[in-house]
């Protein structure tokens, strides 16, 4: 599904990301953990062709993302507020994304149904622009918009950050349902070790731009991760 080859990103002489090999199989859910500055967001940005790698390529379904734009049709993503068109209302934004994928109003309402718990009556029919929502609610809008097109590949950067505890649990269940019902391939970064383990079957640890561990999730994973990050 997704393949990263010899990718490097150098910022003013410093290696931010250096990954010789990384691949995600279709239907796989992979969690990316690492401390601040480990290069998680930079890696995601290169996968989404938002920054130019200093070296190497990213292939989505065998096509280089920097040369072909086919991946955009089956990839849903939300990294930060920069992905939102913040002067639209939430409904207008969903409508716009829906239009891009040829969805009718009915399709959009239907696909947003699973999000109603997460939205908690705070997102739709609010008569305010996205920029006026709280960070947490902006995140919910971004995630819903990323999932709206039923993407084959879903990329989320710290989806649990800024969410209240109930929303975190609701989002976790939502992502698990998407996995079982739609076999979505997921690449998710998180600082919340327990949530990401519950959603993903494979965990990668990124440290100083390098992939230091790549493991399948089992009952010991949380303990292993905690001991890894205990300094």
């Amino acid at each position: 599904m997704l393949e990263v080859k010899n990718i490097e990103k150098i910022y003013s002489g410093k290696m931010a990301v250096n990954i010789p090999e990384l691949s995600l199989a279709a239907g796989e859910a992979v969690g990316l953990v690492g401390n601040n500055g480990a290069g998680k967001t930079t890696l995601f940005r290169m996968i989404l062709d938002l920054i130019r790698p200093s070296k190497g390529e990213v292939y989505s379904k065998g096509l280089n993302v920097a040369q072909s734009e086919d991946w955009k049709a089956y990839t849903g993503s939300h990294l930060d507020e920069g992905f939102l068109i913040d002067y639209l209302t939430a409904e207008e934004y969903f409508k716009f994304i829906g239009d891009l994928h040829g969805l009718s109003e009915g399709d959009i309402t239907e696909r947003l149904l699973p999000f109603m718990d997460l939205f908690n009556d705070e997102i739709l029919n609010q008569r305010k622009y996205i920029r006026d929502f709280s960070k947490g609610n902006q995140k919910k809008i971004g995630i819903a918009a990323a999932v709206l097109s039923n993407p084959e590949l879903l990329i989320l950067d710290e989806p649990f950050a800024n969410l209240d505890p109930s929303s975190q649990i609701r989002l976790k269940n939502l992502l698990r349902n998407l996995r079982t019902q739609k076999q979505m391939t997921m690449f998710i970064s998180s600082h919340d070790l327990s949530h990401v383990i519950e959603v993903c079957e494979r965990i990668m640890i990124l440290e100083k731009g390098q992939l230091v561990q790549d493991m399948q999730t089992n009952e010991n994973t949380l303990r292993e991760l905690e001991s890894y990050f205990t300094v």
Binding site: L48, D49, L50, E69, K72, A73, T75, S77, G82, F83, L84, I85, D86, I97, L100, H101
Partner: peptide
């Protein structure tokens, strides 16, 4: 920026 990751040709 909000359009770059969407299926709109560059």
């Amino acid at each position: 920026q909000p359009y770059l990751h969407l299926p709109i040709p560059k």
